[in-house]
Structure formats: C-alpha cells, structure tokens
Simulated assay, not measured.
Amino acid sequence: MRHLLLLFSVTFVNICNASVSPDNRQTEIQAPEGYALVWQEEFNGTASLPDTAKWWYETGNHGWGNHEIQNYIAGFAGNDTCALVSDGTLQIIAKKKGDEVLSSRINTKESWTYGYFEARLKLPAGKGTWPAFWMMPRDGKTWPGDGEIDIMEEVGYDPNVVLSTIHCEAYNHRKNTQKSGNKLIPTAQSEFHIYAVEWTEDFIKGYVDGECYFTFENDKTGNKDTWPFNKPFYLKLNLAWGGDWGGAKGIDETALPAIYEIDYVRVYQKK
C-alpha cells in the first residue's frame, strides 16, 4: 500500500453519484460518516507472502463449484509464486505450470457483522480471467442458503465491466435470480480503483470509486431465504481461471501469466 492511513472516523465524500479521477492515485474514497477503521491490510510488509496472522489459503483444483480450471496453491509451489507481496501491493498471479494453471485464493482470519469493506484493485486482462473480492459466512454450511456477498467480480471476456452481487436461497445464479449491479469502468484493467460494499441490517450497497451502483434491501420478513446477512462474514481475494462464468466464451492462455493487484484492504464499522 502506497499511502499511510490513520485510525479515525471520516465523512463519506461521494455517496451515490460522484467518482474520483483514476489518474489521481493520492485521492482516496472515504468511508461513510460514523464509521471507524477496525482492520486493515496495507501490504507494506517486508515478507514476500501475505501475512499468515491475517490470512489463510484455500487450496486445490476441484473446480470450486463452478468448474474452474485453476489449482489454488498456498502462495507458492516450488519456484512458482502466486501470491507475491512486493512494493506495497499484493499480486495474485495465475500462471501456466506444465499442464495446469496455478493461482491463489486467500481469506481473512477475522470476520465481521456489518460494516464498510473496501479494497483498491487493478484487475487482470485476458479471456479466462475471473478476479474477485467477496465475502462468505464464517460458519457457513450450505450454499447459497447461508449467503454470499460479492463486492467486485469481473470476467476477462467482458473487460472492465465490474459487478456487485448477493446470493442467498431465494436469489442466486443457479436459479438466475441473483441480485446484482454492474458498471463499466474503462480503466479497471489498467489502473487502480476502489471497490467497496456497505453492509448494514437494512441494506447492502455496492460502490466503485465512491459511486453507489447496487442496492439490495432487507425485506424485514425475518426469512433467512431472503436475508441470511445477519452474522459474521470474512473477506476473500482470488483469481480464478476459466469455469462456468470466467470461461463461458473460452480462454486465451496467451494472457498468462495474469496479475490481479491489490493495493490495500480495509474494514470500517460504526462507532
């Protein structure tokens, strides 16, 4: 992370209709009024891998429910590194190794109920890439019944179109009922942008560069099928390759190695 952040409550500068110039790397979107920083990962450490006091890996090549092609490794395998902390950022790298594609998928050890969650990201390019910044329930046992919050997803065959989505029993992609918003960010693959979600007991809102482009409201029926979002969720970062969505229009292995770059991840909660 290339900026120093102090722990203090700030006023949200752009609620639903303004954005920050992507060329101004010193300008940062601020959390909504009344929130304070409670957790952060700035990737400023000297270690070459993510801090295992903050993150844990999911590993394997079993398709992850979406017929994905990549084999997720715990940071490195032999001489191949797929989660590299360097020069103030984390790079999640998908690369060809023999007959397989290696990548990484990391998760926060901490979890939170409600808050404002953001990351500053630069997305990879190439047909087959599928980067994500998302949340899953800490004690989840069933999908989609226990819920999923996708803060940012994008697939390489539809470059620079980012999405924020929720999944639950009533609304999910298997039924084609998922609730989602999308936005074209022309420089998402070439410049850093700030992706965030505000999650309260009343709503979930998706943001990019301070602009709200997705809102899902709690129907207040007390029905878990429509609102399972009332328990701790943890954060996830990964770069998938291929799969039902990422590979829906084929893959282009000339895009490898593909790099998904994360400048920082921050969590705010109401005071």
Rank of each mutant, 00 (worst) to 15 (best):
G147M: 00
G147E: 02
E148V: 01
D150K: 11
D150V: 05
I151N: 14
I151W: 11
M152C: 09
E153H: 03
E154I: 05
V155T: 13
V155Y: 11
V155E: 11
G156P: 10
G156K: 12
D158W: 14
N160L: 06
V161S: 14
V162N: 13
L163Y: 10
L163W: 09
T165D: 01
T165I: 04
T165L: 00
I166S: 01
I166T: 11
C168G: 09
A170P: 08
Y171T: 05
N172F: 04
N172H: 12
H173T: 09
R174A: 10
R174E: 12
K175I: 09
K175F: 09
N176A: 14
N176F: 12
T177R: 03
T177V: 07
Q178E: 13
K179Y: 07
K179I: 03
S180P: 01
S180W: 03
S180M: 03
G181M: 10
G181C: 11
N182S: 02
N182A: 01
N182Y: 00
I185R: 06
P186T: 03
P186E: 09
A188P: 04
A188W: 04
Q189K: 14
Q189D: 05
Q189V: 01
S190M: 09
S190K: 10
S190T: 15
E191F: 05
H193Q: 09
H193W: 13
I194A: 04
Y195T: 02
A196V: 05
A196K: 00
V197E: 09
W199G: 12
T200A: 13
E201D: 15
D202S: 15
F203H: 14
F203E: 15
I204D: 08
I204S: 07
K205Q: 13
K205W: 05
G206W: 06
Y207W: 09
V208W: 05
D209N: 07
D209M: 04
E211V: 09
C212A: 00
C212M: 03
Y213N: 02
F214G: 08
T215F: 04
T215S: 14
F216D: 03
F216L: 00
F216Y: 12
E217F: 06
E217W: 06
E217P: 00
N218F: 11
D219V: 02
T221L: 05
G222S: 06
N223P: 05
N223G: 06
K224E: 08
D225K: 00
T226Q: 06
T226M: 02
F229K: 08
N230P: 00
K231Q: 15
